[in-house]
């Protein structure tokens, strides 16, 4: 099984706007596209409300009868599994009538654990094993993280990690390029969490856009990597624009001062900055086993992005893993 590495594709690129990608037949076509492009699994993104049928277990049940029913739908599209669920606690929940939750607020802890438990509880049935989380808000939206704050955050994710572990699901902290954990805070948080239940989600595109070489992260924290996302970066935030307030809108969506039309794309895109063969090799060397979820993030043409990514995986990355493994065995 490719040295324990399985390939998935993230669904988020199919939903550019809130009223897109709501109908069942669209989901079916997207899942079939992911399947035929050579992927085994699909990663879901947390969402809320009736126009997010794939957003959370309640919506899955409302649309497919039950989580099991959704699992059948996925397998009917010839995919093996939902690899993982991406969840940013700052997203509100219409189902629970809650607003944004914060890992820094102790009062939110019970709700955070409960929500994580719910998402993680659905994953095993869908063949999935990772809850990917946004560990802290964006750097521009919070005070710099001091020892206290980091302590609270670490306690929160440890609690979440213990809860998801009950379902056999790993909790993986996903550091994006706007994160308050960008640069040196990463070790600060990771070192405070329990390696048994909390790992790192390595996102090649986010790290690269944040000016961090994914290879250095692999060499430093290879044993803590619990999940991998492969997307390419087309630009680097060199001017530290991530420190601005509302950077999600002003930098990520609008492209910041340089008006970057698009930060991210599928691996291997024209102008992409990530060296995927090198990252793949490093992951194998670090003994990584688990999902690699390929993404384009947004895309002007979702099916094309999935197929182009599939091309790279089939023709380059998967064979490379075989070769590395053979070399290791020999």
């Amino acid at each position: 099984m490719n040295g324990g590495i399985r390939w998935g594709y993230a669904i988020n690129q199919w939903k550019p706007q809130f009223d897109d990608f709501v109908r069942r037949e669209q989901h079916e076509r997207a899942l079939k596209t992911i399947s035929i492009a050579g992927f085994e699994g699909v990663e879901l993104t947390y969402g809320t409300g009736r126009w997010e049928p794939l957003g959370n277990p309640q919506q899955l049940a409302a649309n497919f009868g039950s989580v099991t029913g959704f699992g059948e739908f996925v397998r009917g599209c010839a995919l093996d599994a939902v690899s993982s669920w991406y969840w940013d606690p700052a997203e509100r929940s219409m189902e629970h009538l809650t607003g944004p939750l914060s890992p820094m607020a102790e009062d939110d802890l019970p709700a955070m654990v409960e929500r994580a438990r719910e998402l993680a509880g659905a994953l095993p049935e869908l063949g999935g094993s990772v809850l990917v989380v946004r560990p802290v808000p964006g750097a521009g939206d919070v005070e710099p993280l001091g020892d206290d704050a980091l302590g609270r955050v670490a306690a929160c994710w440890d609690a979440v990690g213990r809860a998801t572990a009950e379902h056999g699901v790993r909790t993986a902290l996903h550091v994006d390029f706007l994160s308050a954990l960008r640069r040196d805070h990463v070790p600060a948080l990771l070192d405070r969490t329990d390696p048994a239940v909390v790992g790192l989600a390595l996102d090649t595109g986010e790290l690269t856009a944040g000016g961090i070489d994914p290879l250095t992260v692999i060499s430093a924290y290879g044993d803590r990597i619990a999940h991998v996302q492969f997307k390419d970066a087309l630009a680097v935030d060199e001017a530290e624009e991530y420190l601005q307030p509302h950077a999600h809108w002003t930098v990520r969506v609008r492209g910041g001062a340089r008006e970057i039309p698009r930060w991210f794309a599928e691996p291997g895109a024209d102008g992409g900055l990530v060296d995927f063969p090198a990252v793949t090799r490093a992951l194998v060397e670090a003994g990584y086993s688990g999902w690699i979820v390929v993404e384009s993030d947004q895309s002007p043409h979702p099916a094309a992005s999935a197929l182009l990514a599939g091309y790279l995986v089939q023709r380059e990355l998967r064979p490379l893993i075989e070769t590395e493994k053979e070399a290791a065995d020999a």
């Binding site: 076509r29 997207a30 079939k32 596209t33 399947s35 035929i36 492009a37 599209c77 010839a78 043409h301 979702p302 099916a303 094309a304 999935a306 197929l307």
Partner: peptide, 16 residues
């Protein structure tokens, strides 16, 4: 519709 998607879905049908 999109050609990329139509082609993918058709090939899916072939394989499955």
């Amino acid at each position: 519709g999109s050609y990329a998607e139509a082609t993918a879905v058709a090939k899916w049908y072939i394989d499955n």
